[in-house]
């Protein structure tokens, strides 16, 4: 359960989130849509604990824990996963090494045994097959020289491997072709269940055709101005944000 209450956050002293409240129950997938500059990415970074995103008011509880008091890596091992809008390149760091280190950090926190290289490879290969990723992507340095689509696939591989309790997808669909979009949706849908919830941040309704959300929220000027069922996304697609903003 993720419970965001009256969240205010600023970047470089400039307020971006202005009293955002949102509750996502286990098993639910919510979508947040909104125009550029409405605070969508800020919300995802605040949840993940990035430096420079200063919370000035409000609270976030995550499965009963005070999320905002936790270090980024503590949030990660507690089950908070952020799929990056622009995945970061790590020159010289092998993708397999990175992923196994991350997986074992998460497993340690869950009280599970660490995976050795063989067990890890077996699992990774199986997941990659589903994601239609060539195996040599494990050997390449993390995201270095990856195409935009490959980077997003790699994010989905990490998501599938780490199997978090909560995933934030920060405009993961941007710049993807229809096949890649379905791959993203398949990954999220395969994780859906009573112990998994997600916040899908997107500009467009098309991803939500494949990941059908339980709730859709419209973000504007750092606040949620309207919430509804999946039909709200279609309404937005038809009338644009301006119509909803005017009505709110």
């Amino acid at each position: 359960m993720l419970k965001i209450e009256n969240l205010h956050a600023a970047v470089d002293g400039k307020p971006i989130l202005n009293g955002l409240s949102l509750t996502i129950a286990p098993g639910e997938v919510h979508a947040v849509m909104g125009p550029n500059g409405s605070g969508k990415s800020t919300l995802s970074y605040v949840l993940a604990g990035r430096e420079g995103y200063e919370v000035t008011e409000g609270s976030v509880s995550f499965h009963g824990q005070d999320l905002l008091a936790m270090e980024p890596e503590e949030r990660a091992v507690a089950g908070m996963f952020l799929a990056f809008q622009a995945p970061v390149e790590l020159p010289g760091v092998g993708n397999a090494n990175f992923l196994r280190t991350a997986l074992n950090a998460v497993r340690r926190a869950r009280g599970e045994a660490e995976m050795d290289a063989m067990q890890f490879l077996k699992l990774a290969r199986a997941r990659m097959k589903v994601l239609n990723m060539p195996e040599d992507m494990l050997k390449r340095p993390v995201n270095v020289g990856f195409s935009g689509g490959e980077k997003k696939r790699n994010e989905m591989l990490q998501l599938a491997m780490l199997a978090p309790k909560f995933a934030v997808l920060d405009e993961t669909d941007s710049g993807l072709d229809i096949d890649a979009l379905k791959m993203v949706a398949d990954t999220v849908n395969s994780l859906r269940g009573p112990d998994f919830s997600a916040l899908v941040i997107t500009h467009y309704q098309r991803l939500l055709n494949h990941i059908v959300p339980d709730r859709v929220h419209v973000l504007s000027a750092g606040r949620i101005i309207k919430s509804g069922g999946p039909e709200l996304a279609q309404e937005l697609e038809a009338s644009g944000y301006a119509g909803v903003q005017a009505a709110a």
Binding site: V77, L90, L162
Partner: peptide, 17 residues
């Protein structure tokens, strides 16, 4: 880069790792 550090930490690695 700060973004490299954050990316690793978001995946569960502590600062030293």
């Amino acid at each position: 880069a700060e973004d490299q550090l954050f990316y690793c930490r978001q995946r569960g690695l502590n600062e030293e790792e």
